[in-house]
């Protein structure tokens, strides 16, 4: 049974009592909340996830609750509590999903030190991953979303999770956070995309979440081999332009764009070094989304796997 198969009432009961268990692949979380609107939102954007029993170990325990006190009557707010600690500033009560997602990001980024966590979108095809590290505003999420709607499988939009012992990419499968113009761009790109409600006026503008496809959720425990590192940059005036990036420079940019590279010392150095060794590294400037998807598909096809190279 998947979460989409539960009624909103049944989902709200889980959220209110035992909690809703979510398995992202590399980590699990448990969400508790009595906010009824949140149940409907979760049913949409986490609909493809299995409706698991809320037992076992959770990397992050998240509670979303109304802010008590006089604020209940004047501009009511909700707050996110991560393992018992309120971590982020409250949001308006009608904006619970973005707060939950950002609270979960915060919880995962500050707790998972058993993996190297890159700030990157990651997709794969045929078990070969494209890692797309980027700064906010670079078009990373839009490109990641478009790739997953054209046959690539999603590993993560936010966390590139690198296994320390062998540099394989693990999944941290969560809804993709689309912002501002990207929401309509993806709606037009694929009319079948399941996108949750839009939340205007967040600190990042309007935000909406693209639900991962059910068969991507089913693959959440599979790992992928690194094949490409691509630094995307959206430029409306550009078509599609791919240029090689020197590997040492790619290493430096990946390390600087990581959540925990500096905390893991030699383990993260070795893991990132192997990942870069096994990858071909590129800068992608794109204004044409369909063209960028096609170019990355072609590039992946043309890039020999590290196993093939070792055999040469």
């Amino acid at each position: 049974m998947r979460i989409a198969d539960l009624s909103v009432d049944a989902l709200l009961e889980r959220l209110s009592f035992s909690g809703l268990a979510l398995d992202f692949g590399a980590a699990r979380s448990r969400i508790r909340s009595s906010l009824r609107p949140l149940a409907g939102m979760l049913r949409t954007v986490y609909g493809g996830y299995p409706a698991e029993e809320s037992t076992g170990f959770f990397d992050v325990n998240i509670e979303l609750r109304p802010v008590p006190g006089i604020r209940r009557f004047i501009r009511p707010q909700c707050e996110v509590v991560c393992d018992g600690v309120r971590e982020l500033e409250p949001f308006p009560l009608d904006t619970p999903l973005p707060l939950l997602e950002w609270g979960t990001n915060y919880g995962l980024a500050t707790r998972l030190f058993c993996y190297l966590m890159l700030h990157a979108g990651v997709v794969e095809r045929g078990g070969r991953a494209i890692v797309m590290p980027a700064l906010p505003g670079s078009g990373k999420s839009t490109l990641t979303a478009a790739l997953t709607l054209r046959g690539f499988r999603l590993l993560s939009d936010e966390f590139g999770v690198v296994r320390l012992e062998d540099s394989r990419l693990m999944r941290m499968l969560r809804p993709l956070a689309l912002k501002n113009e990207s929401i309509d761009v993806i709606r037009r790109f694929d009319a079948s995309a399941v996108i949750g409600p839009s939340f205007p006026k967040t600190h990042k503008g309007t935000v909406a979440h693209l639900a991962p496809l059910a068969h991507h959720v089913d693959a959440r425990h599979e790992v992928a081999d690194p094949a490409l590192v691509v630094f995307p940059r959206f430029d409306a005036s550009a078509g599609v332009n791919l240029e090689p990036v020197k590997k040492a420079r790619a290493f430096a940019r990946l390390a600087n764009n990581s959540f925990n590279y500096h905390a893991l010392g030699p383990q993260s150095f070795d893991a990132l070094g192997r990942l870069v060794e096994e990858s071909s590294c590129w800068q992608l400037q794109y204004g044409d989304l369909e063209g960028a998807v096609a170019a990355l598909g072609d590039l992946l096809e043309r890039t020999p796997s590290s196993e093939t190279l070792q055999g040469v």
């Binding site: 020197k246 590997k247 040492a248 420079r249 290493f251 430096a252 150095f269 070795d270 070094g273 870069v276």
Partner: peptide, 11 residues
């Protein structure tokens, strides 16, 4: 020291 050498540069 640990190092990865890539072409004409190293980390």
């Amino acid at each position: 020291l640990r190092a990865f050498e890539f072409d004409d540069e190293a980390i």
